[in-house]
Design a binder for these strands. Sequence first.
DNA 1: CGACTTGGATAGTTCTACTATCCAAGATTC
DNA 2: GAATCTTGGATAGTAGAACTATCCAAGTCG
Lengths: 210, 210
Amino acid sequence: MRISELSRRSGVSIPTIKYYLREGLLPAGTPTTATQAEYGEQHLQRLHLIRVMLDVGRLSISALRGVTDALADERLPTHDVLGVAHRALAVRSLGVPPEPGSSTEVAALLDELGWQTDADPAIVDELASALSALRRLGWPVDADAFRPYAAAVDTLAEGEVAYAYDTSTRDDAVERAVVGTVVFETVLTALRRLAQAHHSGRRPAGARIP
Amino acid sequence: MRISELSRRSGVSIPTIKYYLREGLLPAGTPTTATQAEYGEQHLQRLHLIRVMLDVGRLSISALRGVTDALADERLPTHDVLGVAHRALAVRSLGVPPEPGSSTEVAALLDELGWQTDADPAIVDELASALSALRRLGWPVDADAFRPYAAAVDTLAEGEVAYAYDTSTRDDAVERAVVGTVVFETVLTALRRLAQAHHSGRRPAGARIP
DNA sequence: CGACTTGGATAGTTCTACTATCCAAGATTC
DNA sequence: GAATCTTGGATAGTAGAACTATCCAAGTCG
């Protein structure tokens, strides 16, 4: 198919597709003549993937490029591509600088849980940053406050990883991991807010502050 | 204190503070003369809150304004302010339009869980949108796939709501709810990613796709 | 043959979150 | 009390992100 059909079937405008091509998010089609190229089903799938990452996952174009670059590097084994993709998904500059010691505190908790703390120092820093932000706002919390949250996501993550690896090709595994991480993240947070509304509504009226 | 001290103590530049004043995120100080005003500790606290919402929570200025506007409306009881704040936090235009029927499907699940589905139709739509996005990418999922996620956040949300209401003033309760929702959301997703890395690392090498 | 399409390049737009500059009134310092 | 900040308020400018529009020469289709 050519670009106009790709645009029609994906719902993405031609200028935007050209933009994604320029940015390297979408691999170039196979050229048929000097000024024309052919696109396949994988381009359509990739476009859907891009839209989901951008719209549902709120990823930036540059984070997305990190993922697609890893996908494009044929030499990398699945596990490494997953790592790269995972790191690309996690890029978020921490606005609140972590106070000294908070990273160690978080790392100690993770050690205790048996999780590798060296896997991704950026995420550890993010947790430390969240902890520091809470303290700056006057919340008397330590890393133990994160324990129930860790417990809650542990089993979820196990199933997700199992599902990601349960496929035949490297690209499928990476796509599953990326989609699962991003989409189910919004599912998780949406459900959490609904659960909060549910429990907030169940509070007896007397417990409410007038 | 005057603006320069507020800037020094908060770490936010004077032009930015002026910007927040213009945007109505920060209430004006009490004017001492025609061209000067006095700011208090609550302004400092509000600035910290704003920075956490923007930096940790990735909220937009307009979403933040929704929260601060609700806080500023003295007539609203706690529960309503929480509702407004909650809705302001949830604004995210769903890029993938939900397919027909998917909202009903999600609503059915929520009903079964005993959660009010009418509380916030926007969040239900968001879940429906996520479901549609997954299907568009070829995942054979239905709303039941969300069940373990709902179970995981249920107890978390219960504790969070209890903590938010366990305070003396309306503003404190709202601040707790907002901070808790936003900061612990990043905690939750960061921990989920660490848990994924942990379980991915535990996979036997043979199970990895080359 | 002539209208339309294509890939590629370049420039322009919209939105968000600031940042810079200016100004007159007031405060501070000498 | 004069000279030098500082302040609050207004207005304009900036950087980055994610598109969007326009142009063009080469090629395709009826």
